[in-house]
Amino acid sequence: MQKRLSKTVFPIVCVIPMIISCASRSVKYLSRPVPLNTGVAVIIDASNSMKNAVMARFLTRGFDVKAINASDFYSMEDVFDIRDFKKVSYLGQDHDFLSLEKTFNNLYKLNYYNFEVNKAEVLADMRNKWNVQYLVLLKLRPLGRTSWGRAIDLRTFDLIWIENHTTSFVDNVEKIVDRFIKSMTGK
């Protein structure tokens, strides 16, 4: 009996700390609530069926959900213009490219700033053309891992809501999304 108990207890004792170690701390911050009935774009990296389940929860609560995909944003590959480098790449044999280290370093920084400007322009367009007032990003993760969400007010570009929630045994997609909606609306 004692042997059987130790067989049962041992994996639990091992697994629980592993689950806890995968999860980061739970945090929640809301500077101003996202009003219901407002235009939101919900970005989530998930299968279409899960996306539908998530959008349905937002629609049920009265949000004006706009159809925006993560792929509607620029990716770094789109804005990283390497044409000039392609033209000079095979000059490397004749040139000491170490002297261009600073150039490459600066080029990457400028490109990254430019990437952020492009994203800001896309978001401004979303607000002006499609009346998207808030951008909501969600990541739903399996048991023991941390699901997270954040919301950005596109009028001011302020980050107004964040939450980290460790997915528990009782959670499912609907429950986590409901929890996040409740949290971001302050209700």
Binding site: V27, K28, I43, I44, E116, K119, L137, I152, I162, N164
Partner: peptide
């Protein structure tokens, strides 16, 4: 979630955070 953890520290520390980088998954 690590990025949220970082944002939480600054937001609760009284700073306003602009949604650059925060706007990407």
């Amino acid at each position: 979630d690590d990025l949220n953890d970082l944002y939480y520290s600054f937001l609760s520390g009284g700073y306003r955070i602009t949604g650059i980088q925060a706007n990407s998954l």
